[in-house]
Amino acid sequence: MKLENIIDELSLDVKTCREGLRNEVKGVYVSDLLSDVMANSKEGDIWITLQTHLNIVAVAGLKNLAAIIIVNNRQPQEEILQKAEAEKVTIMTTPLPAFEAAGRLYQLLK
């Protein structure tokens, strides 16, 4: 499944790197601990988190993640969006809480 196919299902607002929407989604990893994501996420995963600070971009870039979904309608600041755009990391926000977002993705991907 491609990233663009999940936008409506999770009410996603695409904030950066729209060209990433054609990326294939291989899985999902849910965590707010950055070292945990570094250790256990896999290439092509969507990362669901409530973190909005700058370091999420580096983590997603280093692990070649498909995208970051930020939950609960939390909004990253402009400088984070700029960095994500520059490093070609797709960031999307959703009003859904993490449980709900992960649940819907589980239904779509299983």
Binding site: L33, L34, S35, D36, A39, Q51
Partner: peptide, 15 residues
């Protein structure tokens, strides 16, 4: 609160 400091850094490096 930033999601660091989980006590995984050095173990991740070693692993």
């Amino acid at each position: 609160e930033m999601g660091w400091g989980a006590g995984m850094g050095l173990p991740n490096m070693k692993k």
